[in-house]
Amino acid sequence: MAELTTVEALNLALRQEMERDDSVLVLGEDVGVDGGIFRVTEGLIDAYGEERVIDTPVAEAAIVGASVGMAAYGLKPVCEMQFSGFSYFAMHQIESHAARLRWRSRGRFGVPMVIRMPYGAGVKALEHHSESKEVYFAHTPGLKVVIPSGPRNARALLVSAIRDPDPVVFMEPKLIYRAFREEVPDDEETIPLGESRTVRDGDDLTMVAYGAMLHRTLEAAEALAEEDGVEAEVIDLLTVSPLDDSRFTESARRTGRVVVVHEAHRTFGPAGEIVARLVEKSFYYLEAPVERVTAPDVIVPFFAREQDYMPDVDRIVAGARRALEA
C-alpha cells in the first residue's frame, strides 16, 4: 500500500497490466521517452521497450485508427489523446470505427482498446485544453465512458477498462492529477465498469457528481451539514456511460431532492440524462425540481476566468439550498 497521486496510480495500473499481459500496448504523442506530458506513462518505455510503448507522430486519427486495427488483431492498445480537446481530430475513428467495428462485423472483431484523455478545467492551461465533452462519447452507442475521481478508483477503473472487451473512453480529470494522494493497494484491484458508488451517506438530499466535481460536491455536502444541519448523500458515477442509475434512483426516492453537478456544459449535458432518468423512475418521489449545477453554455474562458466558469462549492451549496427549499 502506497500513498499515490492519480498520475502515479494510473501509471501503476498501466505498469501492472503491461507486466501481466503482453498484448497491452501504449501509444500516443510523447508517451514514451517523455513519459507523457503529465507523466502518466513515465518509465514504461524503459520497462517494456519502444515496441510496446510507442511514441507516435502527431496524428490523433492514426493513433486511434491504428489502435482499432491493433485491437482487431487481438492486442489491447491503450492510446492517449494528449488533451481531450485534440480528440476531435480522431472523432471519426472513435465514432465510425472504434464504436462500430464489433457491430459492423457482427461480433467478429471486438475492439478492446482504451482511449485515455486528460480533460477538464482548473489547471491554467491554454485554449482547447480544458473542455469537458464527455457527452460526445456518451452519446455514441458502442463506447463506454469512464471518469475516475481519485487515485484509488482511477487505478482500479483503468485496469478494468484495459481488460474490457469493448472500447473505453477513459477521461482523466486534470484537476485531480496531483491534487491529493490516496492509499492505493499494491495488489491488483478492479472496479466493475458501469457501477456508481455512494461516497457519503445522507437522507436529506441526493448529490450526483463525478470526476473533479466530486470533491467540490463533497465539500459542499460538509458545508450543508455544518451550516444547515442537512445530511446529503453523495454519489460518484465513475462510469458516465453506460450510466448506472440504480444508486441515484434509490437515493432520490429516499431523499426526494436531487442536485446534479458537472463541469460539462449545461444544455444536453450529462445532467440532462440523469434528470430524465429521475423523471422516468422517481417522479412521484421527488419533492422539488432537480437542480443542475453545471458550467454555463459558454466556451471555456481563458484561465484567468476558468475558476468562475467551473461550479464551485458556493454554487453547489446554493443549488442544494434551492433543491431543499423548494
Binding site: 485508427g65 491504428a66 486495427g69 488483431y73
Partner: peptide, 16 residues
C-alpha cells in the same frame, strides 16, 4: 478511414 486500421493490423502482425 480504413487505412489506419490496416496499419494497426500490420503493427500487430509485426509485433507477434
Amino acid at each position: 478511414s480504413q487505412i489506419p486500421h490496416a496499419v494497426g493490423l500490420a503493427y500487430g502482425s509485426k509485433y507477434r
